[in-house]
Design a protein around this nucleic acid. Structure first.
Lengths: 234, 234
DNA sequence: TCAATAGTGTCTGTTAGACATTATGGA
DNA sequence: TCCATAATGTCTAACAGACACTATTGA
């Protein structure tokens, strides 16, 4: 599928725009979440990075623009999870846009690294120099991932098609930022009918090989329980 | 504080704009959530309604614009809860804007009704004729309220400063769309240390008078429990 | 007095968290 | 063999949901 000649990685110096669309692409690497950043085209700023962004084209929706951006950046389109929000504070954006709309995309671990000279994955919680609004969009994406984690099956979008339960638990631990109890994790997973075992096993290093599972949601769990005033005091 | 002469209720016919800011104001009325709508200025459309909206002014942030809109619409500023998101699909908006950013504001029950001839509260789940994008923003606001209900103390923003526990439970039931168990609700509320009793009592109709409480969060609940894969299969 | 609503005590099934144990491979 | 990891069984404290009961007012 032919795309425009100028990819985000080699975009020309900043132009004026009233509204930009930015995508935050996340993938796990080791025990960290990493995000894809592009070196700023502006030669005046040294070692300045930004999110892949573009402006809307005629007849395009916001989602169209974000999907096109993700495709142009990573080749095959990653799973676009949704919109983070609009960022229109006084913090600057490389495009000069008054307002930027950020989207979140999740890339499975082990996907082909698209790293050219101007594109690289950085730890999402310790990004390099970013314009203030870009930093706000990245932080918003991380918050959105954690918020939606217990409501949508987004952890599975960060894993390959088959995975071990330890891998799945590690993803949850990365996203939640805390360790989970193995037995409880597997018990809750079993009760939710979200995965099914394959007949493959994988041996990594020393210990006993782990069975591979695939994401296969069967049904939603029975009745809701009552109101939990969990973090409500925040 | 002087405001612009043309309030949203009497705004001139639609002008072209590239980006609009809309506010969804919600308040409980009876056992329903209601939203504030403004009659469309466009004389061609008969009985067409829209959300209060405006465009950003120079040096204004998105939040500034939303707060100004809420103030101009309701007098004293209601509690603006946050942004719903950007809506830039092909669905039309009264402003003709390519993209609209929606904000959510919660108005305590019993607040002065600002109803002029061109402004009225409508049941949020059965609005009158709305442009498609406006309908999408309203639906997004309702979804956001339910999503954030167990994470943020938004139920209290729909109540006056003092309230009975039955009122509070009714708000939760309206927002969740289901009935709650009285004893469990109060037990969870007590454990969360979110309200404190006043020494006032209120008698409404027949039964025993109810004690009035006020919102007074003390601390957050102790340890989190593990992962709950609640609605995760969705 | 009855009806209606507020508020509380207690029982039970479920579950999160902890601990222990077995299983299975590599060094 | 020892060690590391996978996977599972069991116990306990906490909690949601249900029921029953008392308390207090107006009709």
């Amino acid at each position: 599928m032919p795309d425009r000649p100028s990819t985000p990685a080699t975009r020309p110096p900043p132009r004026r725009a009233s509204l930009s669309v930015d995508v935050v692409l996340l993938t796990p690497l080791g025990r960290r979440l990493t995000t894809l950043l592009v070196r700023t085209g502006d030669p005046r700023a040294k070692e300045r990075w930004e999110l892949p962004w573009d402006t809307m084209r005629a007849e395009e929706t916001l989602e169209d623009t974000a999907a096109r951006l993700a495709r142009a950046t990573l080749g095959a389109g990653p799973a676009l999870i949704g919109q983070i929000g609009a960022f229109g504070n006084r913090r600057r954006h490389p495009s000069g846009a008054a307002v930027s709309v950020a989207f979140l995309g999740l890339v499975p671990a082990g996907a082909p690294a698209p790293v050219g000279g101007d594109t690289a994955w950085f730890p999402a919680d310790e990004p390099p120099g970013l314009a203030p609004r870009v930093r706000a969009m990245l932080d918003g994406a991380l918050a959105a991932v954690r918020t939606r984690l217990d409501r949508e099956p987004i952890a599975f979008r960060l894993l390959p098609a088959t995975f071990t339960l330890s891998q799945l638990q590690e993803i949850y631990e990365i996203l939640l930022g805390r360790r989970l109890h193995k037995a409880s994790f597997r018990r809750a997973l079993h009760a939710a009918w979200l995965v099914e075992p394959t007949d493959e096993w994988r041996s990594e290093g020393r210990g006993r090989p782990a069975q591979l599972f695939r994401y296969a949601p069967r049904k939603r769990r029975g009745g809701r329980r009552g109101v939990r005033f969990d973090v409500l005091g925040g």
